[in-house]
Amino acid sequence: MSAVVVEKLVKHYPTRSGPVVAVDGVSFQVEPGEIVGLLGANGAGKTTTIKCILGLILPTSGRVEVLGVPSHRPQVAQHVAAVLEGARNVYWRLSVEENLAFFAGLQGLSPRRARTRIDKLIALFGLEEKRKTVANLLSQGMKQKLAVACALVKDTEVVLLDEPTLGLDVETSHELRRLIRQLAQEEGRTVLLSSHDMGVVEETCQRVVILAQGKVVTDDRVDRLLKLFRTRAWSIQVAGGISQDTVNRLREVFPLIKLHSFDHGATLEVELAPGQDFYELLDLLREEGVELEGISRAEPDLEEVFLKIVRGEGR
């Protein structure tokens, strides 16, 4: 059984000027133990999708289930916990320990079971010294860690993290990435993560689902996506420069070409379209009399891949 099933999910928000389509037929599944990134620009439908999975928003149509339980039922919370909007998920007037005890209790965990989980999470997140400190007095990073710990204390099979590294410094962000990986590897949790921080997604997720304008535009493994774009992206160093006319002629065949000119040369960055051959490009460069100085494969990161996909430049 899949941990999360989203099938033909549609969500329209009623407004005075007519319904606004937030999610338009989104379908994907997350298997147990997977870490999946849900990506998209602002307004792509990520948060609406996540909240539909949590049952916080009722879909217009479609099927959403977590471990077989329909999301509109409160019982879905037995299987899924979430961090939404970062640190705005904890009680600022309660201490670290009280927050964790409250959320464990809210889930129905007995005090004894909660105690074991609280001790483990406090140690895991390095919050021992702040155990009795009220959340209000914690740093932003600590609050964020506490928010994630409060979701994890519920001991659910599925965890949804919406922007978990928002506002964190580099060090804490890296620490959180390690913790997320640890969650899946050691505890076998299923994680669905939404973030604008591509570093986090690239480092933690095995698969990404990319949304654009409420639809799924890509659902693939991160390594496959990077490989796909790596084999199609080339960086060509040109000796002595290159005329704009030549570049324009090259663009007629290879539209995704960028020119970076320097004092003593230039670099062409070329993105091959599906079905195009690298040797075609070399032949064309020879015909144009372009003197090559070096050729290397461009190493795109997930951010570049993401941008190309949402701009419709790839796949």
Binding site: P74, A77, A82, W92, L106
Partner: peptide, 14 residues
């Protein structure tokens, strides 16, 4: 506070 949605995620309902 941003905790209302967390309370809605109680398995026994709000």
């Amino acid at each position: 506070l941003g905790t209302l949605e967390q309370l809605y995620m109680c398995p026994y309902g709000f």
